[in-house]
Amino acid sequence: MTAHSSTDALESSAGRRAQIQFGETIMAIVIILFLIMVGFVFYYNVLRSQVETEVRFREDLEGITLAKNVLGLDEVRCTVESGRGEGCIDVLALKGLAYALTNNDYLLKQTALSYYNELLGPAIIDVHLLSGTRAGQSFRVYDNPPDGTFSTERTFLFTTLYDPVQRTQDLAYIDVTRYLTRRGEI
């Protein structure tokens, strides 16, 4: 073997080793990138399921918030002599509000009801009385379904209502049907 060919052989061997090492490096990088991508995909899926859970929780909360908004109106609060303090809701006042809000007059809807439409949005809110002398009675407090077909979300909230005639706190539940006209529409 000549000196020239041994040098060539050495160089060739070194070149192959370099190529192999280069290939190993590339493979290592590819594997690392692959693992990172897998990690991102996994993280994205976990995040998405967390977001979905939170969206569902917030949507449930929206229904309860609507019911609370109705029960928080000043016009349905108990009168002073009931002695029940803040948070007491008068069932006759609630019925009186129901009459006012479910009136179908166009002018009234445009002028008087814009406040309630903005507060409660597209929804239907019914009250069902469970105990006391009015047990079994139901009435619609708010009736504002949107035009068109939309998915709905239904929430129930149990509460007590004060009867000023009998002077008792009676059990009732609020049935809120909320129309999903924006995000959340299925």
Binding site: E75, D90, A93, K95, G96, L97, Y99, A100, L108, T111
Partner: peptide, 12 residues
């Protein structure tokens, strides 16, 4: 708010 609150009170 006059209309609805007054109507509610009168209805009651």
């Amino acid at each position: 708010r006059l209309y609805t609150t007054l109507a509610t009170a009168v209805n009651r």
